[in-house]
Design a protein around this nucleic acid. Structure first.
Lengths: 223, 223
DNA sequence: ATTGGCTATGTGATATACCAAATATCGTAT
DNA sequence: ATACGATATTTGGTATATCACATAGCCAAT
């Protein structure tokens, strides 16, 4: 009897429309699908996702408190524009926090996770060779967060996600050049080596070097 | 003509009901007015604030994405319960980030801000003497955030606020003892001295010592 | 051609009705 | 008395109507 019960499917949890809309917009922001300054209206989001205004409005409101969207004092919502000062503060924190997550992750990596990380790096190299910028950015994200999540520090990872959320739109502006950077691959290789040796400080350094090179590129690109 | 225009009031901006509800609940959470495990329903919030369900629901949803409330898989919202592991991670990050904000703040303090900070400390001593725990917690918050905001790092301060949001409910559990701690006052005095001398490292140390003593207390209290 | 105002339209905010699912209540059968 | 099941109630989720305000476009008057 209990065997049968174990097998039964627990009735697929249909995620709420609000949650779905929230995740869709959030993902689009992180992946740089939106342009800074782009305007969003409740009705346009509702229409695009074929839902009513209530869940669309809730999703937008949630992103506003996270800083993923701005609520202009006038009546509309826009994708935030990042100025140089913002960029400096974001990268300061990214270097600090992502470095920290990487440090803790080194001790927790299993064989399986390391293998999937190596596969990710391989795919990233291939995507870059093909000039598939969208894919490069996506795989870069997977690479980094695979490491961060291995730290086991959920709160830390959540904060880092919030920083990527704010970064996303600038990638839209700049990613044709951003994804072309060659140093990234070398730093990722350093990271893989550090993980194999369970070298926390080495992993921290590799990740921080990766971020610093990205920062240098964006900083010079941003006028 | 332009003089007159300067003087005109820009028509006071009535904050939306959603925003108001959000701020009310958030403040209640940070100040420890809610008990961990306490249940919130959309209708009860709407009734308490005398608003309809829509803004109440939006306010709750926003706090859920911030981690200030939990959305139990079943249909209801609860004030999160913090376990020991959560507490450790929160304090790790608080010590890191609040220390950092304090460090940057030391260089930016003006005469005026220092005076108001000293006044805050004086009030805190008085409130503690009277055993007014609510007031002690409130003034302690003002003291800390006056420093953090002086750093000029808006994003950093926002992240720190998010950590206080998660801390709030445990204060409810424990604050009778928490607000009785005597070390806090000494560390605050250290902080004031460090600010006078524009000693960033000293200010960082003072704040971190304050947090560490609080952590030690909570950690031993939490079973 | 410029200025002023009127109108139409778009938009966020709120209230409310309704639904489905979860929970609570209560009665019945053994 | 206890366990089970049917019914009632609560509750979150969604859609929609309505309101107030902002913006844009247009027209007329000077």
């Amino acid at each position: 009897m209990s065997d049968l019960i174990e097998q039964l499917e627990p009735q697929r949890r249909v995620v709420s429309l609000t949650q779905h809309a929230y995740e869709q917009i959030r993902r689009a922001l992180i992946s740089g699908s939106f342009r800074p300054g782009q305007k969003l209206t409740v009705r346009s989001v509702a229409a695009a996702l074929d839902i009513s205004q209530t869940p669309a409005r809730e999703a937008i409101g949630r992103l506003v408190v996270e800083g993923g969207l701005d609520s202009t004092s006038t009546r509309s919502f826009v994708v935030p524009t990042i100025d140089r000062e913002d960029l400096e503060e974001i990268y300061d924190l990214r270097i600090l926090l992502e470095g920290r997550a990487a440090y803790f992750a080194a001790a927790h990596f299993g064989r399986h996770e390391l293998a999937s990380l190596a596969a990710c790096q391989k795919a990233l190299i291939a995507a870059r060779a093909e000039g598939d910028v969208k894919e490069v950015l996506k795989l870069n994200e997977v690479f980094h967060f695979t490491i961060y999540r291995a730290s086991g520090k959920q709160l830390l990872v959540a904060i880092i996600e919030g920083l990527w959320l704010r970064m996303g739109p600038v990638l839209n502006q700049l990613y044709p050049g951003f994804s072309d950077q060659t140093e990234t691959l070398a730093f990722h290789a350093d990271a893989l080596r550090a993980i194999e040796q369970q070298d926390g400080e080495g992993l921290r350094a590799a990740i921080q070097n990766d971020l610093k090179s990205g920062h240098a590129f964006l900083s010079s690109s941003l006028r």
